[in-house]
Amino acid sequence: MSSIHSRATARLALSPAVILLLAWMAIPLAMTLWYSFHDYQLLIPRGNEFVGWENYAYFLTDPAFLHALVNTLALVGGVLLITVAAGIGLALLLDQPIYGRGIVRVLVVSPFFVMPTVSALVWKNMFMNPVNGLLAWLAQLLGMPAIDWLAQAPLLSLVIIVAWGWLPFATLILLTALQSLDAEQKEAAQMDGAGALARFRHITLPHLARPTAVVILIQTIFLLSIFAEILVTTNGGPGTQSTNLAFLVYSQALLRFDVGSASAGGAVAVVLANILALLLMRLVGRNLDA
């Protein structure tokens, strides 16, 4: 009696979430696909006729697309490189016995809670401004010419800004993983005659492989759709030098009102993200013994 009853209750309890997410996933995606095969301009009401792959051809052959694709990958890759490398270093340091670890942790984790628009504006004005920024002053102290970061190296600047926000995430996860490393394993290795370096290489690093993969894949999901930082700093420029896929689709849709090709771009972004998502599901899914 009870288990049959409870199974029905369980299905009922689960259904709102499933229905909502199903709708959220299916309806807009289907619309995106539909628009992407039609000529649809918000400002010029033409017939919205079916145009086949034309939008895709237009979007994919636009030199801006290639640019945006490269920029997207460079942004993701650059931020990952910095956050993972620095994150491992910081995590190893914070795992040592130090005075005031609690406060150090709080300091390191703080940037993660800063909204993207704030961090981008703070960096843009107070650090990267060629006249009044702190970095310009530092360069001057060292006898180097000041750099107009966002004009001369827009992509690198964005990588720095975004990496600052995500470094806490990588550090925190890797630190948590380090703290779950069984101390007896390290002691056993010590008894087996492994030095500090060997212990790091053969015990600590392999232990960090999984959390590092988790960090990479989760960050990738978020980094693929960096938007606000670009909007308030470079606006994608100069030219398309700091335009990524998300920003390109946004400008096609809401600046140029070309719904058709923006949708084609959106569909391309979905395909790219799905490839990465598959990887993540494998990784996280393995950990799930439901």
Binding site: L29, Y250, L254, G266, A273
Partner: peptide
């Protein structure tokens, strides 16, 4: 997987 759907993919609709 629905969380991994990039927002730009559904921005227009």
């Amino acid at each position: 997987s629905t969380r991994m759907l990039p927002a730009v993919g559904v921005l227009v609709p």
